[in-house]
Every structure is written in C-alpha cells, then in structure tokens.
C-alpha cells in the first residue's frame, strides 16, 4: 500500500478550489443580505453554506489518503491547520446558529456575533494561506502596494490637485494685480474671515453664517438653511470646483463687503480654510 504515494488528479485540486468559491460565495451573499428586507435570500445562502460544508466533509471521508480532498495532508503547516479549523468551525457555527435562529429568535445575537467572527477568521485564513504557500513575495508586493495606496490616500484627502490648482490660479492673478505679492497667508485669511463689515447688517461677516469655528456646520443668517462646514478638514468637498469657488466669492464678497474681493484676499481665505 505504501509503495507508491497517491498521485492526486487535476480534478481534485479543482474541486478544492470550486469548494472554496462556493463557500465564500454563499458566505458573501449571506453577509450582504443580512437585512430583514432580503431575508429569503439570506436564509437560502445560510442553507447553502451548511450544505457546502457538509458535502465537503462527505468528500473528505470518501477521498483516498493523500488526496487534497482528504482532511489530513502531509506536512501541512501548523498555522494553516489552526486557521482552517477555526475558519471552518466558525463558519459552520454561524450557518447552523442562523438556521436555528429562524425558529428560535433568541439565537439571533449569537448568530450575528459568530458571523462577524467568521469574517475575521476568513480574512486571517486568506492571509495565512498566502504566507504559507510561498506567497511571501506576493504578500510583500501587495503590502507595498497597500502602503503606497495608503500614503497616497491620506494627503489626497487634504491636498486635492483641483484645490491646489484653484489656489495656484489665484496666486497667478495676485502677482498680476500686485507686483509686491509674496504668497498667501492663513493669518490674513483668518482675519478676513472674522472681520465685521457694516455694508450688510444682517450678514456682517463670513463668520455670521459659517460660525466662529469654520469646522462646524453653519446656518444662513437670513434663510436658516444649514451650511456644511467650510474648513477642508471637516468637509473635504470644499474648494474643488473652480467656478463654484469663484461664484461664491463673487456673491459673498459683494453681499458682505459690498465689493469684489482681490485675488490675494481669496487666496488668503482659501489658505486659512485649507489648513484649518
């Protein structure tokens, strides 16, 4: 018997892959249909997961030793064994607790907890599998890509190229208007923001509607309309559309100051709120 080691066929490996796909697919469907509105589908997906796991266990019992379908594999990494067992156990418990909760509603909370734990276990299982199956290089590449994405995303929230272009355009204008222009100032922008004018007694200052703290939502002093925060840190959608920014400056400068603002004033104001 032990003369020649069992040589698994291509189909057994395909079977294992297909089984992974069926299980993950069922889990994903169950996860996204957890809402009451899609309960029939959720129930179906739960039964699907239970059936797929059961079939897998039957296949494992029937498979010859050495087949990838068998439960025991030679030289299997211990970390992977733990990961497989915990993922399977949690998924099965999640599925069957859900089926039980259909008739015994008090099981709903434990079912949800098990589902959340299964999701974590699945994520860890993927990670372990990648590491164990000579995927270190691949993992390194993926994590490098993730780091790049993360590094790119963080400043992207604060520094939008469109926003930079708007400030740059005002800087170019400011140079034209004033030969002695030497850059924008957040301090001057803040002073402008808080300065009170007498042109329009109902709206004396930017802060009348935008409040003293630009990171807080404001309220239009005349219409009562809620205004989202103007500070970029609190509202990343601010100052990314050039014509909208210019339109607001035109309206609000005329309404509050009774005149148009200079390019320097606009740039100072933006600099203040971008860094706020």
């Amino acid at each position: 018997m032990s003369a020649a080691p069992y040589k698994p066929s291509r189909w057994e490996f395909q079977g294992v892959r297909l089984w992974h796909a069926a299980l993950l697919g069922g889990f994903v469907i169950a996860w996204v249909t957890g809402d009451e509105d899609t309960y029939a589908m959720h129930l179906f997906a739960g039964w699907w997961v239970a059936a797929v796991v059961t079939l897998r266990l039957v296949a494992a019992l029937l498979a010859p030793a050495g087949s990838p379908l068998a439960l025991k594999r030679p030289n299997r990494n211990q970390m992977l064994t733990v990961s497989i067992l915990s993922t399977l156990a949690l998924t099965v418990l999640a599925a069957f607790s859900g089926i039980a909760a259909d008739v015994a509603p008090f099981l709903e909370d434990p079912h949800e907890a098990l589902a959340v734990m299964s999701l974590w276990a699945i994520g860890l299982h993927v990670l372990v599998a990648v590491i164990v199956f000579k995927g270190r290089q691949w993992l390194r590449r993926v994590s490098a890509a993730l780091v790049v994405v993360a590094l790119g995303a963080v400043p992207a929230l604060a520094a939008d190229p469109a926003r930079d272009a708007i400030v740059a355009a005002y800087a170019a204008q400011a140079k034209q208007q004033d030969a002695g222009f030497s850059g924008f100032s957040a301090a001057r922008g803040e002073a402008l923001y808080r300065l009170r004018h007498t042109v329009n007694p109902e709206i004396a200052s930017c802060s009348t509607c935008h409040t003293d703290d630009p990171t807080k939502p404001g309220r239009h002093a005349k219409t009562g309309r809620v205004i989202e925060p103007v500070a970029v840190s609190a509202n990343p959608k601010r100052f990314v559309e050039a014509d909208k920014v210019e339109e607001r400056f035109m309206r609000d400068c005329k309404s509050i100051f009774g005149r148009v603002c200079t390019a320097t004033e606009k740039g100072d104001y933006l600099t203040f709120l971008i860094n706020r």
């Binding site: 005349k222 309206r251 309404s255």
Partner: peptide, 12 residues
C-alpha cells in the same frame, strides 16, 4: 440676481 432680496446671488 445682483440684488436678490438684499443679497448678491449672481452667476454666469
């Protein structure tokens, strides 16, 4: 729109 109930609401 330059005098929209006392405020400026001009646009392109």
């Amino acid at each position: 729109l330059a005098n929209h109930f006392g405020d400026n609401a001009e646009m392109a």
